[in-house]
């Protein structure tokens, strides 16, 4: 069943879109990742222009993360003070990111930068996932391996503007969460992702936040940052396809519930190994498309900018 997407201006199969939403939703329920970093490349593979894919995916991430925020708020797992500082950085970063995005689009280099960002990030994340899951598979076979020290003092603790974050039991410089929020905000605007895959490890390893507040607080920041990206993309580039976002979302929420059900029942290490391999594969395909001699070295586009 074909549906004409009004902003993407192409006809696509609704069932295919639902299946993609469901599949990525399943993975995100299973692993607790957002899935934007897989959905955007898939949309580009099936023919949605990168500009529309990135902006519409940001819109979908708003929906995917908001219910998580409320679930974590009820359990009291959101550090609002930390969230607000991250968000201050995130809003600035994402606004700056949308500005870069519009600029790149005008000079015809947007698709390239989106592809390169994906190659870099999918490559890094895929490798880290593979390495981490292999270590834990090995550790399970050989118990009693030493654990890493959680909190170490480094140069970061000497930075000015120190703030106390009661909920997370931290006394650190506000510059740290500000700059993390800022960097992830830029990525969010250019790649159409929530950025959970960057911000969660950064909060754990760089800020040293307790794991229990990390997920809720990161979702809090992601909801607002992706909402900001959606708004700015709609105003500056008119590339947000609500219909596309809504279809992906329907598949996504259903898939995520099933993923959540399976999460406890399957061996996590092996699944992460598979996900890591899949992420590397997607990154590899994009890399290949950049290196491969194109069918036609000429391409056409609409004149953008007003």
């Amino acid at each position: 069943m074909q549906i004409y997407l009004p902003i993407a201006e192409i006809s696509l199969d609704v069932l295919l879109l639902l299946a993609m939403g469901g599949g990525i939703g399943f993975l995100s329920g299973l692993f607790g990742v957002g899935g934007g970093f897989l959905m955007t490349p898939l949309l580009i593979f099936i023919g949605v222009s990168p500009a529309v894919a990135v902006a519409s995916e940001a819109n979908q991430v708003v929906a995917a993360s908001v219910s998580g925020v409320f679930a974590h708020m009820r359990r009291g797992n959101v550090d609002f003070k930390m969230g607000a500082v991250l968000l201050a950085g995130g809003l600035t970063g994402s606004s700056f990111g949308v500005w870069i995005y519009s600029l790149l689009r005008a000079i015809g280099q947007l698709d390239l930068v989106i592809s390169l960002s994906y190659v870099a990030f999918l490559g890094i994340i895929g490798s880290l996932m593979l390495a981490e899951s292999m270590r834990s598979v090995l550790r399970r076979r050989r118990p009693g391996a030493p654990r890493r020290k959680l909190h170490q003092h480094t140069w970061m603790h000497g930075l000015p503007l120190k703030m106390r974050f009661r909920k997370s039991k931290l006394y650190i410089s506000a510059l740290l969460p500000l700059s993390i929020g800022f960097s992830v905000g830029i990525l969010s605007a250019i790649m159409g992702v929530g950025g959970g895959f960057i911000i969660v490890p950064a909060m754990i390893y760089v800020l040293g936040m307790p794991t229990i507040t990390v997920v809720g607080t990161s979702l809090f920041q992601i909801t607002f940052v992706t909402a900001n990206v959606t708004f700015l993309q709609a105003v500056n580039n008119q590339t947000v396809d609500v219909v596309l976002a809504l279809i992906l979302l329907i598949g996504g929420v259903v898939g995520a519930q099933f993923g959540g059900l399976f999460a406890g029942r399957l061996p996590g290490d092996y699944l992460r190994l598979l996900l890591g391999a899949f992420v590397l594969f997607v990154g590899g395909v994009i890399m290949f498309s950049l290196v491969l001699t194109p069918d036609d070295i000429y391409s056409i586009g609409r004149v953008t900018g007003r």
Binding site: V62, V66, A227, F231
Partner: peptide, 9 residues
């Protein structure tokens, strides 16, 4: 677009 996404979520 944001309101729709929030409501749906």
């Amino acid at each position: 677009a944001i309101v729709i996404a929030l409501a749906a979520g």
